[in-house]
């Protein structure tokens, strides 16, 4: 694979950059921070979300064993509470920013763009608040152990 790529004469690609120059990075304070955030949160979510999916949905009976008693036991541990809360916050920010990127590509009129983006930002913020309240206030000892 690499030998054929190396052997080819280094003509500029259609976008005018030489082969191997990499991709551009966004210009502007907010966009550059958003770009960096996607990569950092993506790296953390690689462990949090893939771990979560494998534990909860694939191994050891997967979702078949998930019921209230299971959560009660799981959220008795500060480790899993922290894991789930961090995943909640990072995944919502990563996902809502991803939606914004898609929107920039497909929706042109500024008003519609702002309206749809605003809707997802508010939805994301509301769900982040709901999830945070539930994770922080959930007290396993409040409910009878089954």
């Amino acid at each position: 694979m690499s030998t054929t790529a190396e052997a080819r004469p280094e003509a500029p690609l259609p976008h005018g950059k030489p082969v191997g120059a990499g991709r551009g990075r966004p210009v502007g304070r907010f966009e550059l921070w958003a770009w960096l955030f996607m990569r950092i949160s993506g790296l953390v979510l690689l462990f949090l979300a893939v771990g979560h999916v494998l534990i909860m949905h694939v191994f050891e009976e997967g979702v078949d064993r998930v019921d209230f008693a299971f959560i009660q036991l799981r959220w008795a541990s500060l480790f899993w509470k922290t894991w789930d809360w961090l995943m909640l916050v990072l995944a919502l920010l990563h996902g809502v920013n991803g939606l914004r990127m898609i929107l920039l590509d497909y929706v042109r009129p500024g008003g519609a763009r702002r309206a749809i983006n605003g809707f997802f930002v508010i939805l994301g913020a509301a769900l982040m608040a709901l999830g945070t309240i539930i994770v922080v206030t959930f007290d396993p000892s409040k409910w009878p152990m089954s």
């Binding site: 694979m1 790529a5 120059a21 990499g22 990569r39 993506g42």
Partner: peptide
């Protein structure tokens, strides 16, 4: 893959791989 090519731009030579 995206992070690899963004932080190590020379890897775009091997993008197909």
């Amino acid at each position: 893959k995206i992070m690899l090519i963004d932080f190590f731009p020379r890897l775009t030579r091997h993008i197909r791989f």
